[in-house]
Amino acid sequence: MLLAKYTLLYTVVLMLVALGGMFSERSGIINIALEGIMVIGGLAGVLADMYLPFSPATVVVLSVLIAGAAGMLYALLLGYASINLRADQTIGGTALNILATALAMVIAKRVNGTQAPKLNYSNKAYLFNIAGLDLSVFIPIGIVLLLIAYFILYKTRLGLRLRSCGEHPQAADSVGINVYKMRYIGVLASGFLGSIGGLAYIMPAVQTWDFEQGVTGMGFLALAVMIFGQWKPFRIALAAIFFSLFRAMANIADSIPFLAQLQWPKEIYNMMPFLASMVVLALTSKKSRAPKAEGIPYDKGMR
């Protein structure tokens, strides 16, 4: 039961963030800043939860939306650098990761007024229980967003256009698609989904968060999930379940008799999802098919 609880928790996080990465990369922008976007979204959502003076249900809705909005704003920084200024997307993303942790620590310290970048909040309104299984509101949110993501990417004109910009932006431009606009949409979608994923990671599990640790590499794991999921929504969801099982082991190793007997240090379990992702990446690398134009700034003059 505990395994199911934690696996679900992490599945939603990894899936949302990887879906965010998918939108960005499908439009042609490598988004390595997902980790930072998660931190910003988590921070904004937690602050909203702490300070909004409304009924619990309203606060839940608003904090999720505020997290999403904050993430979109932050992702705009990546969009501006990599779309308009044609910067190196990996370096820009790295800068935003570093900046996000630093900003979150500064803000968290100022908010709680001490030298420790920790925030305390209440997460009761986000949790509910069905048949003895602890769930959070992020699970239905995640499922809905997964369906919407699939629908937009494959069943709408917007999705088709977005995908074309990640494959061959010159061709897309030649038939009148605004490549810059599509890429902005991709980056903004990744900001929205990534930051809600960040909140989904921080909020349901604990009631206090130390922002010094950022989001402990979940954003980077989500990148592996996205690659393993081959930039496709439902495959990403499956990949997220796979990785979450490994991640959940760290939380529950003590309570499973067989694993507890091994007496491995907890760090081994923390390490596992990262090791698993390397094995998976090595095995799938030959078949892997990334969007062709990702990482290459689009220059109209090069058409």
Binding site: A87, A95, I98, T101, V106
Partner: peptide, 14 residues
């Protein structure tokens, strides 16, 4: 100081 350093990397990117 880390914020400043992050901003500098961001600027360096382009």
């Amino acid at each position: 100081a880390d914020v400043i350093s992050g901003v500098i990397i961001y600027l360096c990117a382009f």
